[in-house]
């Protein structure tokens, strides 16, 4: 990640602690796979060789919420799935982020009816919405990069305030 250029021939890099922490968080972000419908196919494709999300340190899709810090909700969330999704979100260790992938997860999409949540932001707080039905893998990767930008801008102070609120 360009460390070599910064190193020069001195062997020392100066940076802030926040910078290092956020840099390591972005480059080892383990997404939890939450394939709920057709969007999941594009999520798989974003992982596979032609798009290859592992270029950004995300080759490990975890099936367990306890090992992941990014939840990609790929697909429509039914009223019965909502509580399950919330429970998995609550099990993820802090800090954690959520991507609502596709129109269904963002706003209900074509399913404006009794069975589907009109946007997963009714269940969990969402950081990035990716539009499209389904979004192409590039769009998902763009969403992930947007999350990375967000993470890079976060500070310890923000975390501290967030925990003050929740506890």
């Amino acid at each position: 990640m360009g460390v070599e250029q910064k190193l020069g021939n001195m062997g020392v890099v100066t940076t802030t602690l926040e910078g290092v922490v956020n840099w390591s968080r972005t480059n080892a972000m383990w997404p939890m796979l939450f394939g709920l419908a057709c969007c999941a196919i594009e999520m798989m494709s974003a992982q596979s060789s032609s798009y290859d999300m592992s270029r950004f340190g995300m080759e490990l899709m975890r099936a367990s919420p306890r090992q992941s810090d990014l939840m990609i909700v790929a697909g429509r969330v039914s009223k019965k799935m909502g509580p399950v999704l919330r429970r998995l979100y609550d099990q993820m260790p802090e800090p954690k982020w959520v991507i609502a992938m596709g129109d269904c997860a963002s706003c209900g999409g074509v399913f404006n009816n009794y069975a589907i949540f009109q946007g997963v932001d009714e269940v969990v707080p969402v950081d990035v919405f990716v539009a499209g039905c389904p979004p192409r893998p590039e769009a998902l990767i763009h969403g992930v990069m947007t999350i990375h930008e967000k993470v890079k801008g976060e500070s310890f102070k923000q975390y501290a305030e967030k925990y003050k609120q929740t506890t």
């Binding site: 919330r86 706003c107 209900g108 404006n112 009816n113 009794y114 589907i116 009109q118 946007g119 932001d121 009714e122 269940v123 969990v124 707080p125 967030k162 609120q165 929740t166």
Partner: peptide, 26 residues
Amino acid sequence: FPLGYEEPQFTFNFDEIDLRKPYAKE
């Protein structure tokens, strides 16, 4: 049984619907 569950959000009624949308807490 009523058909639609949510009114679609357009630019003219965005804020109005946004106010009553049940957003999740942290």
